[in-house]
Computed example of a mutant assay.
Amino acid sequence: MLDQTPVQIAWVTRDLDATETALTSLLGARRWVRMPGVHFGPDTCTYRGGPADFVADISLSYAGDTQLELIAPVSGDSIYREFLDRCGPGLHHVCVALAADEFDAAVAQADIVMAGTMAGGMRFAYASAADAGVPFIEFAYIPPEIRAFFDHIKQEQK
């Protein structure tokens, strides 16, 4: 496995407002950017080996250089809904950002339970990591346009 520093910590929640408030207080996040109704469709996403079709509300912020992501499942089956139904709200995954070739190599070596490509070309894959004390590790390839969007969110924290 690659030696990689996590770039994101993510929680799954039923209540974005409450989780934003708690993490603002605990971690010093200042501004949250909401992306309601993000659709992960069967043409671009898989869930447990089959086509995925689900919607989630997502909120992003930063604590220092670490991105904070909140995910509230809205509809459909996903590892987010699965986690929320089984465990309740909580820490869901940490994410490492990889170059395109590193992403492909990491995915080839892992037990991937959900994967896809988002608008703008960001690729993601979740490896089951329950034995490591966190439910999932997310591998992400973040193209320059998406990285610029994330940098903008980070600059809003200052």
Score class of each variant (00 low, 15 high):
residue 4 Q to I: 10
residue 6 P to A: 07
residue 7 V to T: 14
residue 8 Q to C: 00
residue 8 Q to V: 01
residue 10 A to L: 01
residue 10 A to T: 04
residue 12 V to K: 05
residue 18 A to L: 07
residue 21 T to H: 14
residue 22 A to N: 13
residue 24 T to Q: 10
residue 26 L to T: 08
residue 27 L to N: 01
residue 27 L to E: 05
residue 33 V to M: 12
residue 35 M to A: 12
residue 38 V to L: 11
residue 39 H to N: 10
residue 50 G to E: 13
residue 52 A to R: 09
residue 52 A to F: 10
residue 58 I to K: 07
residue 61 S to W: 02
residue 63 A to P: 05
residue 63 A to G: 03
residue 64 G to C: 03
residue 64 G to I: 02
residue 65 D to W: 00
residue 66 T to K: 00
residue 67 Q to R: 02
residue 68 L to T: 00
residue 70 L to P: 06
residue 70 L to F: 03
residue 73 P to W: 00
residue 75 S to K: 07
residue 76 G to W: 14
residue 77 D to C: 00
residue 78 S to I: 08
residue 79 I to G: 09
residue 80 Y to R: 00
residue 84 L to N: 07
residue 84 L to F: 03
residue 86 R to V: 07
residue 87 C to V: 05
residue 90 G to W: 01
residue 100 A to C: 09
residue 103 F to C: 03
residue 106 A to W: 10
residue 107 V to E: 07
residue 108 A to P: 14
residue 110 A to Q: 14
residue 114 M to V: 08
residue 115 A to E: 15
residue 115 A to L: 09
residue 116 G to H: 10
residue 118 M to H: 13
residue 119 A to T: 15
residue 120 G to L: 07
residue 120 G to Q: 14
residue 130 A to W: 15
residue 131 D to M: 10
residue 132 A to Y: 12
residue 132 A to D: 13
residue 132 A to E: 08
residue 133 G to Y: 07
residue 133 G to T: 05
residue 134 V to I: 11
residue 134 V to S: 03
residue 135 P to E: 05
residue 143 P to A: 04
residue 143 P to M: 06
